[in-house]
Design a protein around this nucleic acid. Structure first.
Lengths: 354, 354
DNA sequence: ATCCTCCGTGTAATCGATTCCACGAGGAGG
DNA sequence: CCTCCTCGTGGAATCGATTACACGGAGGAT
């Protein structure tokens, strides 16, 4: 592959001049510029980003370590991140931690080795020594979605408290009384926080949250299934369940249907993280929607600030409640605004078996 | 950040020795090795991958350019690719082309600039000059899922012909007669090939595929919706529709329900690409499942071969039909094996509205 | 005892860019 | 006419690793 020397030779100038043209440095004569450009075109020259990075000590690359690529919430986050990064002239390397701290560390390590300019992490645990080191080494770092308490790093996330309060009110209004939650791992902020918000919201209505109504999940579908089964085995099962993420909601839906029970008639179901598919499930699932795109964009902008040496503030965006059919219908009062794509007449579902 | 020189100083040896220890080159005395290792640990030294890449002319990085990250099929492919690559000691940089040729080119270009060791592409178009150049420049390249006809590059993909034939037989057996398909863009192999397979399968049963029954989509949900609407506006609408990918199937499902029609009673629906969510839709959707994980793994292995200078063969894996309820029930004969997680008794769905 | 190997190690070149510094030409001002 | 800038340019150092080559010392063979 042609190098800068070849271009210099072709254009009859020095490598310094070629470099100056490529980085459009002002002091190059129009004539030289033209000849260099011609040589570049003739040779199909592309600068070697590796060499450039070594010299300039910047890779124009961002790292993004997310907890689970198969989770639509994180893929749409990743997409937003990549888009915003691209407009800022950065590439993004995505690492999938699969909710496993050691995998997360693996990715953080290789990203650091590759001298990425900045790192976006949605931590799977309470903070490995590796991440703590990175913070101490002043690596530009921003947490997104989840964070590690006590670590001085900007956080870009969304606050579901208001939406949870709204959801709880909605459930109680419909007539549900025994509300349960499937939590995420306590090692993640989103795991514990959502339970707290739920408990607090219930408290405002004088409703308690018994331990038996707190299922322990790990953000994967299978754990949602197990937690739901535990609930259903209870002498007095809950009549409404909130899952702390979309995959666990799916698992719970499975478990409930496997018992021959109906959502929402026998039990209501709601989930954190709204995803396109929730419109198409049977029934469509009520969800707490995070502004994923904005989250991703804000995270990249914050990281860019950190890279530039400034200290960006943390950002907290509100989540909002999206009501669908999985919790049952509101008693007639303020009419619910229908969802555009779920604008189906009351769903003439019929049995399809013989 | 500490460099190799610091380590050498700390250990009281030369940089050459440090490098030899790090790359475990045989001719280093045990004593030196120990002291270097100690120094590395003491300084928390990590080799600069950028410098290493410049010198060795390899980045131990693979590029993967996929057509749409929001499509679960591609994310699971990406996950499999990353996993296999990791076991081989490679990192993966994912580029999302969003079905846009110019974005695809952008990613291919930056990946090439970064001197990735090899490139995995699922091309969005019939071949940009850029990709053709890359092929000519002997960049290790492997196509996955889709490919560009006439280009001498190994292809790792799955063949849906048999599964399509099976599906068509299944539909006809149930009693459907007017079979339609929503195709992908003709510029993609998966776009045109699937229509061909469908037409051929129909032909075997003496059934024609009128032009009006070929909807033109672009692999996005919205286009599936539009195509389905066109079908339904026909004087004689089809009674079964196959969508060439999962997103278009979702769009079609929406459109059908928006008309107050029922799947499968009024119209049957099936899709290419099986995804976990198809189990949970209303009704669960019959799909042609590709062996995504194997595809991803095989693609990486083929690429590794190419990087090693060998010429790997193309790989074609069979897809298989997964029957669910969206096409209606088979007339009683061979009993259908039920899906584990869809093992719901005929789905006691009830109306949930008041 | 002498010579030859082999082993461990260090010096320095190298990868492909960026960038500091010096230098020569040409124009302006004294 | 001489001096001093300014401007465009090139030479060479540099980034942090890898690795070819040279070299000195220990040990075995003769």
């Amino acid at each position: 592959m042609a190098g800068i020397k070849d271009v210099a030779a072709e254009a009859g100038v020095s490598v310094a001049t070629v470099s100056r043209v490529l980085n459009d440095h002002p002091s190059v004569s129009a004539a030289s510029r033209a000849r260099v450009l011609a040589a570049v075109a003739a040779l199909g020259y592309r600068p070697n980003a590796v060499a450039r990075s070594l010299r300039t000590d910047q890779t124009r690359t961002l790292g993004l370590v997310i907890s689970d690529v198969l989770n639509p919430y994180f893929t749409s986050l990743a997409r937003a991140v990549e888009e915003e990064a691209r407009t800022l002239g950065y590439s993004v390397i995505i690492g999938n931690a699969d909710e496993r701290p050691e995998l997360q560390d693996h990715h953080v390590r290789t990203l650091l080795d590759r001298r990425i300019d900045g790192l976006l992490v949605s931590p799977t645990d309470r903070g490995s020594p590796l991440i703590l080191d990175a913070v101490r080494a002043a690596t530009p770092l921003v947490f997104v979605d989840r964070w590690i308490p006590g670590v001085e790093v900007p956080v870009v996330r969304s606050d579901g408290r208001a939406a949870v309060r709204e959801l709880v009110a909605h459930l109680l209004r419909i007539g549900h009384r025994r509300l349960a939650i499937i939590a995420g791992p306590a090692t993640t902020t989103t795991g514990s926080e959502r339970v707290d918000a739920f408990r607090a919201a219930l408290g405002e209505h004088g409703v308690a949250l018994p331990d038996a109504y707190i299922g322990q999940g790990d953000f994967q579908a299978e754990s949602g299934r197990r937690a739901a089964e535990c609930f259903l085995d209870l002498p007095e099962p809950p009549d409404a369940v909130l899952a702390a993420d979309n995959l666990m909601a799916l698992g719970a839906l499975d478990a409930i249907r496997a018992r021959g029970l109906s959502v929402p008639d026998d039990i209501a179901l709601a989930a954190f993280d709204d995803i396109p598919w929730f419109v198409h499930t049977d029934p469509p699932i009520t969800a707490i929607a995070q502004p994923t795109d904005e989250l991703g964009r804000a995270a990249v902008r914050a990281l860019a600030e950190r890279i530039a040496g400034r200290i960006p503030p943390s950002v907290t965006l509100p989540a909002r409640l999206v009501v669908r059919r999985s919790c049952g219908a509101e008693p007639p009062s303020a009419p619910q605004r229908p969802e555009p794509s779920a604008a189906t007449p009351p769903a003439r579902t019929r049995r399809s078996g013989p």
